[in-house]
Design a protein around this nucleic acid. Sequence first.
DNA 1: TTTAGCACTCGTTCATGTTGAGTGCTAACA
DNA 2: TGTTAGCACTCAACATGAACGAGTGCTAAA
Lengths: 343, 343
Amino acid sequence: MLTDRQLLILHAIVDDYIRSAEPVGSRSISKREDITFSPATIRNDMADLEELGFLEKPHSSAGRIPSQKGYRYYVDHMLMPHDLTDDEQADMRTIFSDRMQEIEQVIQQSARLLSNMTSYISIVLGPEMFEARLRSIQIIPLAKGSAILILVTDTGHVENQTIQLPESIDASDIERVVNILNDRLMGVPLFKLRQKLNTEVSKVMRAHVTNYEQVLQSLQTSLTTERPEKVFYSGKTNLLSQPEFRDVDKVRMLLNMLEEDQMMQQILRAPHQGIQVKIGQENNLEAFDSCSMITATYSIGGKHMGTIGILGPTRMEYRRVIGVVDSVSKDLTKLLTNLYQER
Amino acid sequence: MLTDRQLLILHAIVDDYIRSAEPVGSRSISKREDITFSPATIRNDMADLEELGFLEKPHSSAGRIPSQKGYRYYVDHMLMPHDLTDDEQADMRTIFSDRMQEIEQVIQQSARLLSNMTSYISIVLGPEMFEARLRSIQIIPLAKGSAILILVTDTGHVENQTIQLPESIDASDIERVVNILNDRLMGVPLFKLRQKLNTEVSKVMRAHVTNYEQVLQSLQTSLTTERPEKVFYSGKTNLLSQPEFRDVDKVRMLLNMLEEDQMMQQILRAPHQGIQVKIGQENNLEAFDSCSMITATYSIGGKHMGTIGILGPTRMEYRRVIGVVDSVSKDLTKLLTNLYQER
DNA sequence: TTTAGCACTCGTTCATGTTGAGTGCTAACA
DNA sequence: TGTTAGCACTCAACATGAACGAGTGCTAAA
């Protein structure tokens, strides 16, 4: 196992490197207030730490930098996540107290808050729609032959799309359709909509609505189109301020990866309790090799909704970021639960 | 005025520079098939063109590059915008034929299409809500004390936000409120909603709804919150492939500017007919000094809706881009008119 | 009016030398 | 036996300067 001195040195190196982004030498460590050993002693321990895989050398005459394993150890065993400052808490309250918002806005605001507080990229995976239940369905005629279909879920999510209707249909027909749909589909999980439509609704419609086939057809296409969850980002430009991303090609690779919505969803979807920290290659994505991701989940009344987090360089201020992600996810959960949970 | 030969040379230089991003020398010009003069002759004309302000030299022993005035002349007098290839037209039809979409999706798709076709950044200013008229208003109760307010405009735009309601209110009250609102506010331009609410609606509500003050209050805050138009971008990462943006700081400055929504709206709002080309400093924005912007407007049934365009380096393929922006804006107008105009 | 010739300019590239931060090893010390 | 001082060695970063070559402007000839 590591000696106390080795721990102290490892801690110091990670801290210093996170601050400066420069390889850390034995001399500069020895000058720290909390270190009382000579550079030579430190060098010996550094050599040991390197052998154990906690440190690496960019080249033979440079200082050391933490390896992935080093960061991991730092995060798992040395980290005292630190609370938000008063200013930060005030910021957060301001944003979360402005209540009149679309749910998507709330989520985007949270993302913006995260990126502002951390100066890294924030990532938010939108609420999972899969299990959400239908709360209300509306059809608003627009032009002849077209209308807007609006779905509202019990989680407060509103979705709309234009649909085609037979030109012959009239207002009272539409009203009847809407009534039938609300009557039969209220409370049905979105993923079961299609099935219910075919079984229950279809029969009733035949009895009450002229031209019901075309309407049904339209509804079917609309209701079964995939509702991909969205991934929101904020602060992408923050990346450009990080010294490890002076290289335009690296930036491009990373930003391109972020635009692969499917890939990102897959990575983010994995639900987990509390704070998850993925360092470097733990993400299993070449483009993220020199990045870490810190995520938490948010929920409504205990029901898992989505993921919120930070993407930054592996050389990240874990201490602060973990605190921030934790607070924001908890506050977001509280806010959403307040707004949308049935009591 | 410019001689024919000078025109030819200017044209050749701009073309070459747009292709290569390298200063163009007299020798390489003389090798072109359409040029029959010797390098020396060309040098003389280049010197003249420089004196007249159409060209500039990065330094004394480099070739020439077009100045802003040079690009302007090129765009105004030498450009034959060119039609889309069959492939491009096919792409466009595919995207625009998929009809079941939210209006915002249509617009975002258009943006994506533009950036894909041009490899520059596309910019779309969302539909102007100011004059849109209310088509329908719905209130969907969610939890005790909160509900979702949904507005639909005649342009097919759907907006939703959560509102607070007095806990005592019941379903039939809400139904009455919704009926009153639809009855009195249908067809009212959004910017007049507040006023109408105070005059007409308030009286009627008093007569029919218990607790109407609180409801009215909630509606007022909701209906009068500003509805800022959104600016959509697509292809921001394309920027990073352009040689003039190898410099991370330049990229950062530009991307930061794009996030200034207000500023961008102001720039984009200015309505205009046909295609507008703004070159370099004509944008009056330092961050855009080395960029050009090509914009067109889109409309629904002749009613101005928003702006769509491309942002790229001044060294831009004007010929192609102008054609693309023109086609996309026209097709978008056609599609939206089809979907949303009352006939 | 056009072009060939030539001296000149200036950024780019490459080889070379210098500097200094940092290491590893050895030997002395507590 | 653990700690430290001393010293030779390594290597990226930086500076210097020579060679190169793309391109120019000017002059004089065609």
